[in-house]
């Protein structure tokens, strides 16, 4: 992590000190379902037929859940985190040039190192490069709209892109998604697997979005909104937004029916 990013961290007054290191292979902290959207959220119409009606069966994390795939730099290409360049054909994509950066942490405040972060988004006009997207705004010939990065030893990641535009969708007659970037994060165990969306500070579509409204906890919703990070912006080049992602914390198994301890 750069000295600049470290200073940003230090300045964030709500950032706790890391707790006791997770020592062993205990399961993850129980997921707090009160901060996540419920499966059935009828304001988001697609969820009505795609939500289980039975309760989830709680499983104490076993080896199947506390392990997960490990990725390395060999899985990635050199331009994978540069959406300005990774699909450029004859020039740069049109749009507001931005950098998105942040850390992947777990609930104990510790960085999650060497974990895969994937992201995808519409172009500056709100059009996705996807065969199923028929919105009339045009495709940008120099913009693919996806990328990926591995976090460094401190859990830090960054990528460069253009700011996505809002787009309409068939939910209510006049529903528009706020500008957003989709994120997929792995963590160190399959039970940490998370997909979410990042929104941009100040967007007036945020309070009227049925998908954002599925998040029941206002503070949890606020944590999906990335602030403008002017100090980290590159003058005469790109504005920067900061988006930290928190994955589940890991319990230690102080006592367990195993020959070895932690």
């Amino acid at each position: 992590m750069s000295a600049q990013a470290a200073a940003i961290d230090a300045a964030r007054i709500n950032r706790p000190e890391p707790l006791t290191p997770p020592l062993g292979d205990g399961g993850f902290f129980q997921r707090d379902r009160a901060i996540h959207p419920p499966a059935y959220a009828p304001g988001y119409k697609s969820s009505v037929l795609r939500s289980p009606r039975q309760s989830l069966l709680s499983l104490e994390g076993s080896i199947s859940e506390i392990t997960g795939p490990v990725f390395g730099h060999n899985d990635l290409g050199p331009l994978d985190n540069d959406l300005i360049r990774n699909y450029a054909k004859d020039g740069d994509p049109i749009g507001e040039r931005i950098v998105v950066h942040g850390r992947v942490l777990d609930e104990t405040g510790r960085g999650v190192p060497n974990t895969l972060v994937e992201f995808w988004q519409a172009n500056a006009g709100g059009r996705y490069r996807h065969k199923k997207d028929t919105y009339l705004a045009p495709i940008d010939p120099n913009f693919g709209g996806c990328g990926r990065a591995l976090t460094d030893a401190n859990g830090y990641y960054f990528f460069r892109t253009v700011k996505p535009g809002p787009y309409p969708w068939r939910n209510y007659v006049n529903s528009w998604r706020p500008a957003h970037i989709h994120f997929s994060v792995f963590g160190s165990g399959f039970a940490q697997r998370l997909i979410t969306q990042m929104y941009f500070e100040g967007d007036p579509l945020i309070p009227v979005c049925p998908i954002l409204a599925t998040v029941p906890d206002p503070e949890a919703l606020g944590r999906l909104i990335a602030p403008l990070d002017l100090n980290a912006s590159a003058p005469f080049d790109s504005l920067t937004y900061r988006f930290d992602i928190v994955l589940r914390g890991r319990r230690s198994t102080y006592f367990d029916n195993r020959p070895e301890g932690n």
Binding site: L19, D32, K132, L194, I195, T196, T214
Partner: peptide, 16 residues
């Protein structure tokens, strides 16, 4: 402790 980042749908264009 921090709180986990809330999940959001992957959406119809997750393939991108």
């Amino acid at each position: 402790y921090l709180k986990e980042t809330a999940s959001q749908t992957a959406g119809p264009y997750v393939h991108i």
